[in-house]
């Protein structure tokens, strides 16, 4: 499958160790993945290009993940957003869903768990097309 046909995923997490684990795993599953550790760069990127799926951390230095989520949904309402967070609270979970996230995953999680969620999001996107 050409890169243009692949499901496009953007990952934003300020912990490089998370990106180093997640990006190759999702690429291996056949996705076209771009990873960012700085929220400003990710924010600029979503202005240039629509992504099918965005995976974002919440608690980051600089632009907060919740603000980023809002930006993504405003720019591209059909993008499915998956929140991953190391400091989960009931409030952030509720707020994320109010803002229309596809799923909310607290760290630690296994790669299999996030791959399952990404596959479900992809299936929903295909169903909407």
């Amino acid at each position: 499958m050409g890169d243009e046909q692949k499901t496009k995923i953007l990952i934003l997490d300020d912990e490089p160790i998370v990106l180093n684990r997640l990006k190759p795993a999702l690429e291996k599953s056949g996705y076209n993945v771009e990873a960012f550790s700085r929220s400003l760069e990710a924010s600029n990127r979503i202005m240039e290009q629509d992504f099918d799926i965005v995976i974002t951390d919440l608690k980051m230095e600089g632009l907060d993940g919740m603000e980023f989520l809002t930006q993504v949904k405003e720019r591209s309402p059909l993008t499915e957003v998956i929140v991953i967070t190391g400091f989960a609270t009931m409030e952030t979970a509720k707020e994320s869903f109010k803002k229309g996230v596809f799923d909310f995953l607290a760290k630690p999680f296994k790669l299999g768990e996030i791959k399952e969620v990404v596959a479900k999001a992809e299936s929903k996107i295909r169903g909407n097309r």
């Binding site: 160790i17 998370v18 190391g86 607290a106």
Partner: peptide, 11 residues
Amino acid sequence: QKSIEMINQMV
């Protein structure tokens, strides 16, 4: 990393 993440949720 996993252990740090688990601590974060406990804190």
